[in-house]
Design a protein around this nucleic acid. Structure first.
Lengths: 253, 253
DNA sequence: CGAATAGTGTCTGTTAGACAATATCTT
DNA sequence: AAGATATTGTCTAACAGACACTATTCG
């Protein structure tokens, strides 16, 4: 089968983003409201076309910055205050996934700390953090203002579900859960991230022993905080370790 | 940023395949020789254009069948004799990865048993199973007939490395290693798969206890074989379990 | 003080890894 | 018999999970 680059079917290539954060004890995703058909008025994942001279990761980082003001974290560079973890998730290319034309979407997964000042691209009413449970609920779901939330436009419910599952499994065997935390955080705050992402309750004592006993996971900064109430808690930064061995075990029930 | 489907940069979309198997104690990948520029005469991963009305997975399964005669395994359907595991790997879209034009390639990973009768698409000299170590060796590597093997064309060395790493980690926590085995196999044959993929030696006694003690991993067929010499070994089929919990642990050294 | 969160210590059952010992084939 | 592979059993150290207990803050 000869490889003839001049006779190929025309495709559009987009990036879509699953941007996750933990707010008020719930795992939330960034959703944008569609202003035009198809799926006008429905919520969708943020995304857009890949430019002609742009790498896929670059396009995803650009969309992320446009929607949230977050920088994609560069492992080689310094740790920025507003850095989010960004990785490729999967590619979706069903011929009928967009009714207008053939669109192949390279989905990316971003994990961000809860934003002190969320900076929506333009219209605040058209961008929101929504609990993933609400976005994925197959029964009729309605957002704050009564507008229809589910199902998401296109195949975005599937993309979101895949992104959430990726995040849930990756925090088991990597230190990625710290991407949901601010630069300095307590063991209790990190535990609440795990509890929100997995949707389970963890034993605070065993969790503390586990994370502080894993070399390279957490580095104490020396400071303490009482922002959670109770006895002052030590503050930590993320350590250099990327992989957790042995992993954090996700309870089955 | 309006979503204007009539004004998108033109992309070609291809699928590339990392097809892995275990032959003579070595992890091998399918490579095809390029008959035309660019990279003429160099080895590359099999692949081709996605057709205008074709799903990405369908395109990958079609290429796999064209190159090897293997069917992609459908988890819902019956277990076919010549079925290979097929999954999406990642997507590669650097603007300069193909010197001719903008090509986005959705790479897929296939795991196949050692083929009793390899059926190359056409010219037998243009398709071969090559040890991945040879294909990825950064020093000059030369194949059976003295032709240059490395580096692979385009960014295929990176794609192959990513596929190998995916396979290495997935057999840790899933039952996927059985995809490298024929329908009936012994514990020793399964162990040699792990040893070839990971490039380590495993204790036969602890391995046996581990795999036979994991519910749903292996189902005894009742038969035995002496094809490996020594005491007759029980034959097994792959069980229904997909995830191994607890996982197989890959030795560090 | 009581409530809340942080952190340490102890016990128990499971499991990985090391390795002795036995079983059953081929040559 | 010698050599190869298969299979079972035993011991030990590490670790997860349960949970008693202490520490330090706020109201």
């Amino acid at each position: 089968m000869p490889y003839d680059p001049s006779a190929f079917p025309p495709f559009a290539v987009t990036v879509d983003l699953v941007v996750l954060t933990v707010r008020r004890h719930a795992l939330c995703a960034l959703a944008v409201r569609r202003g035009e058909p198809p799926y006008q008025g429905r919520w969708a994942l943020p995304g857009g076309f890949v430019r002609g001279d742009e790498d896929l990761t670059t396009a995803a980082a650009r969309e992320l910055a446009e929607e949230t003001g977050l920088n994609a974290h560069d492992p080689a560079g310094p740790v920025l205050p507003n850095a989010a973890h960004l990785e490729q998730l999967a590619t979706y290319g069903d011929p009928k996934r967009d009714p207008r034309m053939r669109v192949v979407s390279v989905a990316h997964l971003a994990l961000a700390p809860d934003l002190p000042a969320p900076r929506p691209g333009g219209d605040a009413r058209s961008v929101r953090w929504a609990p993933v449970e609400e976005l994925l609920d197959q029964e009729a779901g309605y957002g704050r203002d009564g507008e229809q939330v589910t199902p998401l436009a296109f195949d975005h419910a599937q993309i979101l579900a895949d992104g959430v599952e990726r995040a849930r499994s990756k925090i088991e065997y990597s230190s990625l859960a710290t991407a949901f935390c601010p630069q300095e955080f307590t063991v209790g705050e990190l535990r609440r991230v795990y509890e929100a992402v997995w949707g389970v309750a963890l034993d605070p004592r065993n969790f503390h022993r586990k994370v502080t006993g894993t070399p390279g996971f957490l580095v104490p900064t020396g400071g303490t905080t009482t922002r959670q109430g109770g006895r002052p808690a030590q503050l930590f930064r993320a350590g250099g370790a990327t992989l957790l061995n042995p992993p954090m075990l996700r309870p089955e029930a």
